[in-house]
């Protein structure tokens, strides 16, 4: 596919049908070092798209390249570069956060000494240092989300994919996560996230993709989306989003 290394993710002609088409001929490009927000109404195909990128769902057709690595031909090579954190935290209730991070670091073959230091640093940053050796079974949803986020970051992925990362977080935790993501992007990392909180996308995202019915309706910066929707410069992302999705539904 010849994707340049400035492109973190290139998706071409992606298709997936379950009982009905979930994703249809989707083309998507996410540049390295940007925060990309994928927006869409419920059932738009956001999660299916991201699951295909993460290698969890097999596409019916299409190509996916992660930093130039063909995810379908070399899944292990592509997986080494990314982390995926769904809205339901992928953690083990009977493990402590430290044990969980040890396991995830092992899966990504991180040097044990480096991983241990990184795990302690991440848990401290996320305010979980005092809970590091307590089993996750008694944690709140927000705490579990934070443990899962630490798991996604422990191997320092080049591409971080987050599905509804702020679900279940209180205001302080949500702010902390947003700051961490911003810091990651500022440091050159690439983040793709889905969210229903349009304010977050409006304030944080470098570029935004709007998807509905499994098709990409529009993509670009907020200003580009506004002009695509023929909206005045003062209109919010919510206005643009509602107009574009309503046009698609019509």
């Amino acid at each position: 596919m010849g994707a340049a290394l400035t492109e973190a993710l290139v998706v071409r002609g992606l298709n997936k049908t379950f009982a009905k088409p979930a994703v249809s001929d989707l083309d998507l490009t996410v540049r390295a070092g940007e925060l990309y927000a994928l927006l869409g109404p419920n059932g738009a195909g956001k999660t299916t798209t991201l699951r295909m990128v993460a290698g969890l769902t097999q596409p019916d057709a299409g190509e996916i390249a992660i930093f130039g690595v063909d995810a379908r031909k070399d899944p292990a090579g592509a997986k080494a570069l990314l982390a995926w954190a769904p809205d339901e935290a992928m953690i083990y209730d009977k493990l402590t956060p430290l044990e969980y991070l040890e396991f995830v670091a092992g899966l990504w073959n991180i040097n044990p000494r480096t991983a241990k230091a990184k795990a302690e640093e991440l848990l401290a940053t996320l305010g979980l240092a005092s809970e590091a050796r307590r089993r996750c079974e008694g944690f709140s949803r927000g705490m579990k989300q934070k443990v899962a986020l630490a798991g996604a970051l422990i191997h320092d992925p080049k591409l971080l994919i987050l599905d509804e990362p702020l679900t279940g977080l209180d205001a302080a935790a949500a702010r902390l996560v947003k700051d961490m993501l911003q810091a990651r992007v500022d440091a050159g990392g690439t983040v793709i996230l889905t969210t229903h909180i349009l304010d977050v996308a409006e304030r944080m995202a470098d570029r935004i993709g709007i998807i509905a019915g499994g098709r990409l309706l529009a993509e670009g910066t907020l200003d580009e989306l506004r002009s695509r929707a023929g909206e005045a410069s003062g209109r919010t992302l919510e206005d643009v989003f509602l107009q574009l999705t309503a046009e698609a539904a019509a």
Partner: peptide
Amino acid sequence: GAETRKAAKGPVGAFAAGAFQATLRK
């Protein structure tokens, strides 16, 4: 929430090296 145990004490052991060891330990 009663199944929440007290946090373990003492030094944290070394992390497992590699996927096999980490999965076995987990």
